[in-house]
Simulated scan of single mutants.
Amino acid sequence: MKGYKLVLLGDAQVGKTALINRLLHGRRLEKYEPTEGVDLTPVAIQTNHGSIRFIVWDTAGQQELGGLRDGYYIDAQCAIIMIDVTLPYSSYMNWHRDLVRVCSKIPVVICGNKNELRTERTERTGCTLQAAFGRMNLVYYDISLKFKNNLEKPFLYLARQLTGNQKLKLAMLPKAPSLIRLTEEENEC
């Protein structure tokens, strides 16, 4: 089975490692432990056209480790940039800029985590951000690791882009098919 290299980017503590843990094991991380360098994790999703495997390069978000990142991006075929919707959004542009400098034309998804903590002010900002990402031709999904909302959507979108099959549907998530229940409408992303 072919594996697509997916780089998972974003500031420290936005939920990058927690996303992979939630998908594969169905549980939340009890305490924060920063990623040092990069962790590689295979994640396979089951679709109506078979299994699609991502090799997720979960990168460190600490600024002091920034010099290593370009090497992690080489040969990446897709990316997820995670942001925390409760914090200012300035850094996502830096992540995107650095990524496209190394891999110019790969599908990229922005995931705004912690949407359950949004206030009225950040909800308005979120709408503005979604429009801004759209103008940049980037796909954006609000996700919640706490409530398991929309965790499958970035992977399904990337699988569709990589395979060129827009009719691709998710059959089940990795290792924990009961982790997220999809209705037919939700499977249409």
Rank of each mutant, 00 (worst) to 15 (best):
K169T: 02
I80L: 14
A131G: 09
W57D: 02
K105M: 09
R124P: 08
K16L: 01
I180Q: 10
E152W: 03
S178Y: 15
Q166S: 06
S90M: 04
Y32Q: 00
L156V: 13
D98F: 00
L117T: 09
V139T: 12
P42N: 00
S51Q: 07
R124S: 13
E36C: 15
N48Q: 01
G37A: 11
G50M: 14
D98W: 03
Q161K: 15
L179P: 09
L29I: 07
R22Y: 00
Q13T: 01
Y32W: 01
G61K: 01
Y141C: 13
L99M: 04
L162T: 09
N150L: 09
S144E: 12
L138E: 13
S144G: 07
C111Q: 10
G67C: 03
L6M: 15
P88I: 10
G61F: 08
G67Q: 12
P174D: 08
Q161F: 02
A44P: 06
G126W: 05
L138P: 04
A131E: 15
C189F: 03
S104M: 07
G67E: 13
A79H: 01
L99F: 04
L29G: 03
T35Y: 05
T119G: 10
P88L: 12
I180S: 01
R97C: 04
P107G: 07
P177W: 12
L129H: 02
L19A: 05
M136H: 01
L138C: 14
Y73K: 13
L162D: 02
I20P: 14
Q166V: 14
L8G: 02
Y92H: 09
G164L: 06
R118S: 08
A60P: 02
F54C: 05
L40Q: 13
K105Y: 08
I83G: 11
S90H: 08
L40C: 11
L87M: 04
G3S: 07
L6T: 13
L117Y: 03
K114W: 11
L156H: 11
E152Y: 07
D98T: 13
E185D: 10
C111E: 09
Q62Y: 03
L162F: 07
G71N: 11
M136K: 05
L138I: 15
R160E: 10
D58L: 02
K169G: 08
I45Q: 09
T128D: 08
A159S: 06
G26R: 12
N113D: 13
L117W: 03
P34S: 12
S104K: 10
L29Y: 02
R27H: 15
E123D: 13
G126P: 00
V139H: 07
H25Q: 15
A18M: 00
G126H: 05
K16I: 01
L156P: 01
S178R: 12
L179V: 14
P107E: 03
D75A: 10
G26A: 15
K2T: 06
L9D: 10
R53N: 12
I106N: 08
T86S: 11
T125I: 14
K105V: 06
H49I: 14
L87N: 08
L29N: 02
C103K: 13
L68P: 09
N115E: 13
V100T: 05
R28C: 14
N165K: 07
R27W: 08
G26P: 08
L138Q: 15
E184F: 01
I55T: 04
Y141G: 04
K146F: 11
C103Q: 15
A44L: 07
